[in-house]
């Protein structure tokens, strides 16, 4: 988790730096009285990098992925459910009753 979290922090830092540069750029435009045609190229690059880093962090930081392959070891079917609809009560457990103090109060 540590590495993923660190990457996320860097991504957010780059994103905030991009925000800061955009604000500065707009202030500069106001002073020089130019038309706004689009964000400067360094802000766009920063945005793309931070997008990738934040995506990476969102995938890696919260937890591990579980396998979806049916043939993988952890998804191996090892038992069928007990057929509870056909459960019968007079089985050999009848001879060994549980503790009798189990009662609903």
């Amino acid at each position: 988790m540590g590495a993923g979290f660190l990457v996320g922090v860097i991504g957010v830092l780059i994103l905030s730096h991009a925000t800061y540069s955009t604000i500065q750029y707009r202030a500069l435009l106001k002073i020089t009285e130019e038309e706004f045609s689009g964000p400067p190229i360094d802000v766009v690059i920063e945005l793309i990098i931070s997008l990738v880093l934040c995506l990476w962090a969102a995938m890696a930081a919260p937890g591990k992925f579980k396998s979806i392959h049916p043939q993988s070891e952890e998804n191996r079917v090892i038992a069928l459910p007990a057929n509870l609809d056909f459960m019968i009560f007079n089985h050999r457990g009848k001879i060994f009753p549980l503790e009798t103090e189990l009662k609903l109060k």
Binding site: F89, L98, K103, L104
Partner: peptide, 19 residues
């Protein structure tokens, strides 16, 4: 209730069903 029936403690099952 079903588990109680399976364990033959019918009294507990009866109480659950009553509720």
């Amino acid at each position: 209730a079903v588990a109680a029936m399976d364990c033959q403690s019918n009294d507990a099952a009866k109480d659950c069903i009553k509720v």
